[in-house]
């Protein structure tokens, strides 16, 4: 037996309303995001076909943040995530592993060679016969080409590198494929998305599909889109991967969670990514 979700959230909204009074300055849901006065981000879009019966419009998490947090993402200098992009750029150019190679030796300047990459991951890899996240692809490069040690799936080296690789795709629409051999992973991810977990018996959908835009305590619930990942969070002042965020969400349902990099989270990332097909790649974005 679980607590009724609607009852819990209703109570939470009431408490939030009391705490916040009029609730001004929470978020400007109509705001438009232009980064560096140059990159026009699509922060709201028509829902992709597979969500046609569920949602009319998909929204970037940016839409739900406060004015101050929104402003941090409008300029790459104000966005603290970029100091970690700089750190990753040093790693990109540094040789590592027995082969004595750096990322740059094969891929030159990531601002040219990595255009469009973030937008299509996770992606089926025919040669390896597996669905790969960007993290898995980076580790495949490290072990296969560089003969270097794998990076920890959600460690800082890895999350910083995924942020760097995302930068040249900013403003491009997320366009993750889920047909062919990827489909069975997509179905598995979808099942996870709608499966209630934990003592609170909450599925992803209970908050991010049924209640986006509502308050959960003092937090403004988003649609749980991952087009902005990795994100710089004000909470922990570092870049956070999608899998780390999934883990945090599932832990908050008071469940044992899957591990970052697990088959379950890879499948969930594929499914959640396709819920955002049509939104712009924003990473590294800024959230609370």
């Amino acid at each position: 037996m679980g607590i009724s979700l609607r009852g819990t959230l209703g109570l939470a909204s009431a408490v939030a309303a009391l705490t916040l009074g009029t609730g001004t300055a929470i978020a400007d849901e109509e705001a438009e995001l232009v980064v560096n006065e140059e990159i026009e981000m699509v922060v709201r879009a028509e829902a992709p076909d597979h969500l046609a019966d569920t949602l009319d419009t998909i929204y970037s998490g940016w839409v739900f943040r406060s004015d101050e947090t929104q402003a941090l993402q409008a300029d790459d200098f104000d966005n603290p995530g970029f100091v970690f992009v700089d750190v990753a750029m040093d790693a990109w150019n540094a040789a590592d592993g027995a082969a004595g190679k750096s990322c740059a030796d094969c891929h030159n300047d990531p601002m040219d060679s990595m255009v469009g990459v973030r937008a299509v991951y996770p992606k089926w890899n025919d040669e390896a016969g597996e669905l790969r996240t960007l993290e898995m692809q980076i580790n495949a490069c490290r072990t296969g080409q560089m003969e270097a040690e794998e990076w920890k799936y959600d460690g800082s080296d890895m999350v910083n590198m995924t942020a760097l690789i995302s930068v040249p795709s900013r403003g491009l629409p997320v366009n993750v494929a889920y047909d062919g051999p990827a489909q069975e992973y997509w179905e598995m991810g979808k099942e996870l998305y709608y499966t209630r977990t934990g003592q609170l018996e909450l599925a992803c959908a209970n908050c991010h599909e049924d209640h986006y835009g509502d308050m959960i305590r003092a937090d403004h619930l988003s649609q749980g889109q991952i087009n902005g990942f990795p994100v710089y969070r004000l909470k922990n002042a570092k870049l956070n991967s999608a899998h780390a965020r999934f883990k945090g969400c599932i832990r908050d349902t008071r469940a044992h969670t899957y591990k970052p990099g697990s088959a379950e989270f890879v499948a969930l990332e594929l499914y959640v990514a396709t819920r955002g097909n049509g939104l712009s790649v924003e990473a590294p974005s800024v959230r609370n």
């Binding site: 939470a12 705490t19 916040l20 305590r217 003092a218 937090d219 909470k235 956070n240 965020r245």
Partner: peptide, 10 residues
């Protein structure tokens, strides 16, 4: 300055 206590601090 009112400091909010987030719902899902992650």
């Amino acid at each position: 300055v009112k400091v909010t206590i987030g719902g899902c601090g992650g």
